[in-house]
Simulated assay, not measured.
Amino acid sequence: MEIVKLRDVEIGIGSPKIIVPIVGRSREEILARAQELTNIPLHVVEWRVDFYQDVNDLPSVLSTLRALREALGNIPILFTFRTRKEGGERELPPDRYTQLNLAAALSGDVDAVDVEIFSGDSVVRENIDGIHQAGRIVVGSNHDFQRTPSQADLIFRLRKMQDMGADIPKIAVMPRSAGDVLTLLSATEEMTRCYADRPIITMSMSSQGVVSRLCGEVFGSSMTFGAVGQVSAPGQIPVDQLRQVLEILHNSL
């Protein structure tokens, strides 16, 4: 499996790398949050720009992004606009979504950009091609807040992300039973064993799916999301507890 590097962080080897989101609405809140995170044992910071109150002002986004880059030092930044249909705070027309993602990639201040893989193939290709041309990594994503699809469907979605050129395919789904969590884990294992040639990220959301955020190294998920106060999705757990469990599992394997 290919290893993906974000600055000094190697994804696809060892225990899952920890991502912590920033979901501030103002520039001041975002930068204050960044200062807090510089002392936390994490690997990647995700800026959830869909929460940002000035997201429709591109110069403001890029200015805040530059300040965020300076505040975080060498910590990799994942730039994410999560659309409302996949659980985000707001919606953007496809052309504006693309413009935002490509501007972030071209700024040089982000290390990876999230692209929702079911935004329409032409939109997705434009985003992925542009982000790659800017020399940045693509996290291809899909979120289902209503249910857990079948194992075959989960694998289909992950393979589509891989086939379209996402460097790190990611899927998050909502469980309605313990069996749904097992479906997600089984799909992760099969994808990793049979099809994946790059790191993948999978998770089952809500408190019922917490186990999926902890055992990625066993089943094949290469990154996981932790919380430092604020959360961006249901089921995220505090980073200090998350790191402790990841280390216990890693040392036992």
Rank of each mutant, 00 (worst) to 15 (best):
Arg96Ala: 11
Pro16Phe: 03
Ala172Trp: 03
Thr192Gln: 03
Arg125Gln: 15
Gly73Trp: 13
Ile117Trp: 06
Ile30Asn: 04
Arg198Cys: 10
Ala105Glu: 10
Gly226Cys: 08
Glu190Trp: 07
Gly130Trp: 15
Phe219Asp: 15
Ile168Thr: 05
Ser15Gly: 01
Met203Ile: 15
Leu72Tyr: 09
Lys5Gln: 09
Thr64Met: 05
Ala34Asn: 08
Glu190Thr: 13
Leu65Lys: 08
Ala105Trp: 04
Phe79His: 07
Gly88Asn: 03
Leu102Ala: 07
Leu68Ile: 03
Glu247Phe: 06
Glu217Gln: 14
Arg7Asp: 05
Asn56Val: 12
Asn101Ala: 11
Ile77Ser: 02
His250Glu: 15
Val138Gln: 08
Leu214Val: 11
Tyr195Thr: 01
Val210Trp: 01
Glu2Trp: 10
Met1Cys: 01
Glu36Ile: 13
His43Cys: 01
Glu190Ala: 12
Ile22Gly: 05
Ala103Gly: 01
His132Leu: 10
Ser122Asn: 12
Arg84Gln: 11
His43Ala: 05
Leu37Ala: 04
Leu72Asp: 09
Glu91Ile: 00
Leu253Ser: 14
Arg7Ile: 06
Asp50Met: 03
Leu100Asp: 09
Pro175His: 00
Ser177Phe: 05
Phe81Cys: 06
Cys194Tyr: 06
Ser186Leu: 15
Phe156Trp: 09
Phe145Trp: 03
Ala71Met: 05
Leu72Gln: 09
Ile117Ser: 13
Glu2Thr: 14
Ala71Gln: 02
Ser207Pro: 00
Pro94Leu: 01
Met205Ile: 11
Val113Lys: 07
Ile155Gln: 04
Asp153Arg: 09
Thr202Ala: 12
Val4Phe: 00
Gly120Ala: 14
Ser222Tyr: 08
Ile19Tyr: 02
Leu242Lys: 04
Lys160Ser: 11
Val123Glu: 12
Asn251Phe: 00
Glu91Leu: 00
Glu91Cys: 00
Leu185Val: 08
Val228Asn: 07
Gly179Arg: 14
Leu106Ala: 11
Pro76Asn: 05
Pro21Val: 10
Ile171Arg: 00
Lys160Pro: 04
Leu242Thr: 02
Leu242Ala: 07
Ser186Asp: 15
Asp114Pro: 04
Val123Tyr: 14
Ser63Asp: 09
Ala112Asn: 10
Val49Arg: 01
Leu58Asp: 07
Pro59Thr: 03
Met1Glu: 03
Met1Ile: 07
Arg193Ile: 12
Gln236Trp: 11
Gln53Lys: 13
Ile131His: 12
Ser212Trp: 06
Ser186Gly: 15
Leu68Ala: 04
Ser207Cys: 02
Pro59Asp: 14
Val245Gly: 05
Leu185Gln: 08
Val4Ile: 07
Leu92Cys: 02
His250Ser: 14
Ile201Gln: 09
Ile40Ser: 06
Asp180Ser: 11
Asp57Asn: 15
Val44Met: 02
Ser212Cys: 11
Leu58Lys: 10
Gly229Pro: 11
Gln162Leu: 13
Ile131Cys: 12
Ser212Val: 14
Arg125Asn: 14
Val139Asn: 12
Asp129Ser: 15
Val55Trp: 12
